[in-house]
Simulated scan of single mutants.
Amino acid sequence: MAGGNEPVTSPDQHKPTNRKAAYTGGIISIAVLLLYLIGNHEGRVEDLWLLFSAGVIALTIAGDWLLRKNGLKD
């Protein structure tokens, strides 16, 4: 059997994620979330959730960028 020693992997493990597209999508998501702050709502709970969600996305992008810059992530 020729392929007996090869590891079994799923097809999505063969293609790397397009980093530029992921960063662009994240930044667009942050912009949309921040634009939702403009509106006619009275409570601040919505604002806090929007800011928290945008912050999590921003920290994820920044963390990934720093790890890749320092060579700790492929």
Rank of each mutant, 00 (worst) to 15 (best):
G55T: 05
L72V: 07
A22G: 10
I38S: 04
Q13Y: 15
L37F: 05
T17S: 10
T24W: 02
G4V: 13
G63Q: 09
L67Y: 08
G43P: 07
L35N: 07
G63Y: 04
L51H: 01
I38W: 01
G55Q: 07
N5L: 13
G4F: 10
P7F: 04
A2D: 05
T9H: 02
S10M: 07
I30Y: 00
L72D: 00
L37A: 00
A2W: 08
R19L: 15
G26S: 10
G63E: 03
L35V: 05
R19W: 14
N18P: 05
R19C: 12
L59T: 08
G4K: 11
S29P: 00
G43Q: 13
A2S: 11
I28E: 04
T9L: 02
K73M: 12
L51K: 02
H14F: 12
A2C: 11
L48D: 15
V32M: 13
L35W: 00
A62Y: 02
G63L: 08
L37N: 01
E6A: 08
L34I: 06
I30P: 00
A31Y: 01
M1F: 09
Y23E: 09
L51F: 09
R68S: 14
F52C: 06
R68N: 01
D64K: 05
M1A: 15
K69W: 11
D12V: 13
A2V: 12
T17P: 07
G3W: 10
L51E: 05
L51T: 10
I61F: 04
W65G: 08
I57G: 00
I61W: 04
R44H: 13
E6S: 15
D74R: 02
T24A: 15
A62L: 10
Y23A: 08
G55L: 03
P11H: 05
A58W: 04
K69Y: 07
D74E: 06
L34Y: 07
E42D: 13
K15P: 14
K69R: 11
L35H: 11
P16F: 02
A58E: 00
D47P: 03
L34V: 04
H41W: 15
L72H: 00
A21R: 08
L72M: 06
E46Q: 09
P16A: 07
S29Q: 03
I61M: 04
V45Y: 10
R19S: 13
V45F: 12
A22T: 02
D12L: 05
V8Y: 12
L33K: 06
F52H: 09
Q13P: 14
G71M: 06
D64W: 01
R68M: 14
D64T: 01
D12W: 14
T24S: 09
S53M: 10
H14S: 14
N70A: 08
L34E: 03
Q13F: 14
P16M: 05
N40I: 15
I28P: 06
L59R: 02
R19T: 13
G39M: 07
G3T: 07
L59Q: 00
L66M: 09
N5S: 11
R44D: 13
N40F: 10
E6Q: 15
R44S: 14
L35D: 06
K73W: 06
L33R: 01
L33M: 07
L66I: 06
E6R: 06
P7K: 02
